[in-house]
Nucleic acid binder design. Structure first.
Lengths: 249, 249
DNA sequence: GCCCGCTGTTTATCGCGTAAACAGCCGGGC
DNA sequence: GCCCGGCTGTTTACGCGATAAACAGCGGGC
């Protein structure tokens, strides 16, 4: 994505207005891919099927997208970028860093829940740079986070530590929540979920499960995770230990 | 895996000893798959290639494994089960719950680092049940964890909360560390990593940079884990919401 | 010694990603 | 008004991967 435009100075080839017949363009393809994955699951996404979904032969997509991998990159980028449009996250309108992190976390959670089938992709696609990582995946947000933290009085080092702890926890949290969701509503995959009866030998687990149904278990888990998310800010490190300097490792 | 054995009472078809010519069996195939993925990356794993790796035609694998998906499930299970053989985790020899969780976390981290190409699979494969989740993925460990926590005086509810917080954090952390590793040493994929020069416009990010080395990562992990465990108490649920009794769902 | 079942091999099919040749359409220059 | 180059979608073609099905050697129980 963000292609270098091989034949550069093309003024728009037909214009966005006018005939309006040009069914395809990169944006439309990526959006369709996101919708397709939401509806049918990632493993169903195929160039031909996505083409059909857009009323076109599969090969047509290659006029606008370099290939499948690039398309998936575009999907990830597109989904993560939704955060910028989220009115509840409003970068500037935050009241303190805890509030800021909570808004950010909840914004990402909304995205993950809106696209549960896409999120594993967000989580596992190789990052663009070593510290531009899931689930933020965007220089803009990382910069913003570090800025807020340092403005709140954190040292540079601690701000970075907060970034790492926050994104680690958030990534794990969202991945767990979303994959749990997949178990319940998986439209295509529907893996074998262990039936409750097999719990017989594991009495301790019953405590996780005062309720009987899988739905209830999932619901519980979700509620607990949600409560956890509100408290994520509390995880952040305080510097206690003087950096152990020359101890033989 | 743990197959129901269609033709049950087979005493071992050739015996494990004796001729020793039977090159293939499920264990050997899964082990080879793990090694193959470690060496060449997940995307290189193909039934034919794995066959060749074992000195056999690809189709031969289907005599012992139901198919590719099942094979991957087996790979995940096999890798996670390494934890049971880790002498440093020794289930019983722990001194307090913090020590226990740290040993567990470090054991899993060792596994993740030993099989960085496998770990994303561990993280994203659909879980067997809603609360049997990555990265533990095993009833045995979940049971063990809950037991330790309750024996340490945590209520059932709080033990479950610790389980959720701990596994979320651990999953996210390890996934990030392992994928970061892929960026540096990726044997096959080598995605386009943004070169350092492109940082020019983002001075704030320079702060994150000192943490590229493995040693630094390990240090980070320990500190983050300690911070998490220190503050687990803060993550535990308070009942805020009265349990909704008869609300129409 | 013969036959069966097990294990690995060969052959075949289908779907996928993608390259390459092909074809309709449209707007600009004459 | 007409022609042409380029852009967009289509068709054709290839190689590969997963997997079913037919096939073949081999070794042990009768």
């Amino acid at each position: 994505m963000t292609e270098p435009e091989p034949s550069a100075a093309v003024p728009f080839t037909g214009g966005s207005s006018g005939s309006g017949r040009s069914a395809l363009d990169q944006r439309r393809i990526i959006d369709a891919a996101v919708r397709f994955i939401d509806e049918h699951g990632l493993r169903m996404l195929t160039m031909q099927r996505l083409g059909a979904y857009l009323g076109v032969e599969g090969m047509a997509l290659y006029r606008h997208v370099p290939g499948r991998e690039a398309l998936l990159d575009g999907v990830v980028e597109s989904v993560v970028d939704e955060l910028f449009g989220d009115p509840d996250v409003h970068l500037e309108a935050h009241a303190g860093w805890v509030d800021y992190l909570q808004r950010l976390a909840h914004g990402l959670r909304r995205i993950a829940l809106a696209h549960p089938e896409v999120f594993p992709l967000v989580a596992t696609r190789p990052p663009a740079a070593p510290w531009v990582r899931p689930p933020l995946r965007s220089l803009r947000w990382i910069e913003s986070l570090l800025e807020v933290m340092t403005e709140a009085g954190f040292s540079d080092e601690n701000a970075a530590a907060v970034y790492r702890a926050f994104s680690s926890f958030l990534l794990g949290y969202l991945l767990l929540e979303v994959s749990g969701r997949g178990v319940e509503t998986g439209p295509v995959e529907e893996p074998d979920v262990m039936p409750m009866e097999d719990l017989a030998g594991y009495p301790i687990l019953q405590r996780l499960e005062p309720h009987l149904s899988v739905d209830a278990a999932a619901q519980d888990f979700e509620e607990a995770l949600e409560a956890l998310l509100d408290r994520v800010a509390l995880l952040l490190p305080r510097r206690r230990r003087p950096p152990r300097l020359t101890e033989g490792k």
